[in-house]
Amino acid sequence: MALAVVAVLLLVALAWPVGLLVWANGKLQRTTALSGGADTAGTTYLLTGSDARGEEGGIAEDGTEGQRTDTILLLHVPRSGPTALISLPRDTYVEVPGHGGAKLNSAFAWGGAPLLVQTVEGLTGLTVDHYAEIGMGGVAHVVDAVGGVNLCYDGAVDDKDSGMVWQPGCHDVDGTQALAFARMRKADLQGDVGRALRQRQLIGAVVAKVDPKALALRPGAQVALVDAGTSALTFDEDTGVLDVARLAVAFRNANGPGGITGTPPIVDMNYRPGNIGAAVLLDEAATPPFFAAVRDGTLPPGQVGGVPGG
């Protein structure tokens, strides 16, 4: 009888994570995104963050209608060398296939994930292997599911637009406070680059809080986290739950001491090429070798790029 009980317990212990994986895989939201372009070395993820509250369906200052994406991150795992997480400012001036020169996030407004992927591939020379779209509103539920996170910001903030109220330093926050932290832009001297940095910090804090050992004996917490995560995220048509796990590991590695974080080489945060408003201009000469070094894993770990003169 005792052996039978042990056998049942072992069966449950083995079947639970398998069942959870099958269940989680079935809950993943997917969208058509990938270009089908020739593979480039390593694995490249394109992560977008959208706060639909302010911009979805709206009209931007450049006259572009449709859904917008506030944060665009390129996460690359080379065959050897450090993992890199590069923030692409949403207002980066780029060539959008079929549309000419425009801001990067206009590609998403005009053609959704597929056109954004093609535009990023043209800018970086890297083929996107996996795409993930993060609804910032859903991130609040994920933060609550992991029991809150610790976030840091050096400035004092009382921003009515985002709801962020902050004293300089690091604070433990819940989902509502974390969402305000991610939304704030106007009170940040670095504008959208600063917001991208804080959103990246928030996602990194969530990833760091997900401790597989701590969750192993808490099936309820596992279910709550998977439920919140799959509600907040949409992936490309080829992504499975194991790819999501690899993405999380890559994100953690990029934000660790051996990883690379930052932006491409920026020369002007107030570039005005025409009637599209202020754009971010990348260094035309330095950008291609920068992304080649990201691809090849030859950049040293640490911070790269940033606001010119900042």
Rank of each mutant, 00 (worst) to 15 (best):
G125N: 11
G125P: 11
G125W: 08
G125M: 07
G125I: 06
L126I: 10
L126M: 12
L126V: 11
L126W: 09
L126H: 08
L126P: 13
L126R: 04
L126K: 12
T127V: 15
T127I: 13
V128D: 09
V128P: 00
V128E: 11
D129I: 10
D129T: 11
Y131E: 02
Y131D: 01
Y131S: 03
Y131L: 03
I134Q: 11
G135I: 05
M136T: 14
M136H: 04
M136D: 03
G137K: 15
G137Y: 13
G137L: 14
V139A: 12
V139G: 09
V139Q: 03
V139K: 03
V139Y: 07
V139I: 14
V139S: 06
H141A: 14
H141S: 08
V142F: 09
V142S: 07
V143I: 08
V143G: 06
D144E: 11
D144L: 09
A145G: 03
A145I: 06
A145N: 04
V146T: 10
V146P: 09
V146A: 08
V146E: 03
G148A: 07
G148C: 08
V149R: 07
V149F: 05
N150D: 14
N150I: 10
N150L: 04
N150F: 04
N150M: 13
D154C: 10
D154F: 15
D154G: 15
D154S: 15
G155Q: 05
A156L: 12
A156H: 12
A156K: 02
V157E: 07
V157A: 01
V157N: 01
D158Y: 06
D159Y: 05
K160I: 11
K160M: 09
D161E: 15
D161S: 14
S162D: 04
G163N: 05
G163A: 04
G163E: 03
G163T: 01
V165N: 07
V165A: 06
W166N: 01
Q167L: 12
P168C: 04
P168I: 10
P168M: 09
P168G: 04
G169H: 01
G169L: 02
H171P: 02
H171D: 05
D172Q: 09
V173T: 08
V173G: 05
D174P: 01
G175D: 10
G175L: 03
T176D: 10
T176H: 14
T176Q: 14
T176P: 00
T176K: 15
Q177Y: 02
Q177V: 09
Q177E: 12
A178Y: 11
A178N: 08
A178S: 15
A178K: 02
A178R: 02
L179V: 00
L179K: 04
A180C: 02
F181E: 06
F181W: 11
A182M: 09
A182Y: 07
A182P: 00
R183L: 03
M184Y: 11
M184A: 13
K186P: 00
K186I: 03
A187T: 15
A187V: 12
A187G: 03
D188V: 00
D188Y: 06
D188K: 00
L189E: 10
Q190S: 13
Q190G: 12
G191F: 10
D192H: 06
D192K: 03
D192Y: 13
V193E: 00
V193W: 03
V193P: 05
G194R: 00
A196E: 14
A196C: 05
A196W: 11
R198H: 15
R198K: 08
